[in-house]
């Protein structure tokens, strides 16, 4: 009874149109995370730009996205209207979880956006530069605790790569995994850990307010508007990008694949998407076709190597 009442309020006040669904986007994560936000932004922009009449977002959370990936590969096979959001975290999760379904079992379309990792210390810390941090790490790896996201995730991988590049045994790093960016950030601000590592966006407002000191970013070149050296400048040959992509279902014909690619390209070039990137602070790293596939293959093999070094993958 109450729901009829609710329905009439809604129908009256908002008069939402009901189209037949065109695209269904699977976000392989819970609401609120990066993939969910990417999926919901895609939904908004696709409708806004008239690429698709009605877009549905479906959350299939679990295990670093591998559950959504597996479900997508089996249930959407040959469906040209289904899309999956994913990213670099999935590459690591497929390896650590021994997932039987990999990115080879779907049709990657394009990389849309990405974020670089940032290494920070609390403002009061004695560590002033990346060189100081590396020196401390070399002296006693156990005494340098790193706060970041889940074990085996992008943050953990980046720390492993840094240790390796600095000539420190990656199995000796003292990495403290936190469940979400917020919790790790609190631990860093409260000086519970020596250093913090996460996507730059997580730290941006703290860095600007002067409560965190930014030591380095993991991009290949300096980022515009960010006053910090790259790891390469600090003498560590490490580049890590936490990218997000969109993939289509397996088993598509070449025409269907081309149609999806065209829609995504139109989306990535649209004013609406550029606006979203700006308000969310996401980098535009659009990369499609063979160039993207090549990059993907490179990332997969590099990640496998470092996860073996840390001891997370046998």
């Amino acid at each position: 009874m109450k729901h009829f009442f609710l329905a009439s309020i809604l129908a009256g006040a908002l008069a939402l149109p009901a189209y037949a669904a065109d695209y269904t986007i699977i976000a392989p994560a819970n609401p609120g995370g990066g993939w969910d936000q990417t999926a919901r932004s895609l939904q908004t922009v696709m409708q806004q730009e008239g690429i698709s009449g009605n877009v549905q977002v479906q959350n299939v959370p679990g295990a670093g996205g591998t559950i959504g990936l597996a479900q997508f590969a089996s249930q959407q096979k040959g469906n040209p209207n289904a899309l999956l959001v994913g990213g670099y975290v999935m590459v690591g999760a497929i390896l650590t979880n021994n997932s039987p379904v990999t990115l080879k079992d779907v049709t990657p379309i394009a990389r849309l956006t990405g974020e670089y990792e940032a290494i920070v210390v609390p403002a009061a810390s004695e560590i002033k530069t990346m060189a100081d941090l590396v020196e401390a790490l070399k002296k006693d790896p156990g005494a340098v605790s790193w706060g970041g996201g889940s074990a085996g995730g992008t943050d953990h991988i980046a720390v492993g790569l840094i240790a390796k590049a600095a000539g420190v045994d990656p199995t000796k790093i003292n990495y403290i995994a936190y469940s979400g960016g917020g919790e790790a950030l609190a631990a860093i601000l409260g000086s519970q850990v020596t250093a913090g590592i996460s996507g730059y966006g997580e730290f941006e407002s703290q860095v600007k307010a002067g409560t965190l000191r930014l030591l380095a970013v993991t991009s290949a070149e300096r980022l515009p508007g960010i006053d910090a050296p790259t790891l390469k400048e600090s003498g560590l040959d490490v580049v890590v990008e936490n990218w997000r992509m969109v993939a289509a279902a397996p088993g598509l014909t070449d025409e269907q694949k081309a149609a999806v690619s065209a829609d995504i390209e139109k989306l990535a070039k649209s004013a609406g998407w550029q606006e979203v990137l700006k308000t969310k602070g996401w980098q535009d790293t659009y990369l499609a076709g063979d160039a993207f596939n090549e990059q993907l293959a490179k990332d997969v093999s590099a990640t496998e190597a470092v996860l073996k070094d840390i001891g997370l993958v046998k």
Partner: peptide
């Protein structure tokens, strides 16, 4: 079905 209409169509729950 009424419940489905309200939640799936109006509130976009999948």
């Amino acid at each position: 079905f009424v419940v489905w209409t309200i939640f799936a169509k109006v509130l976009q729950l999948s």
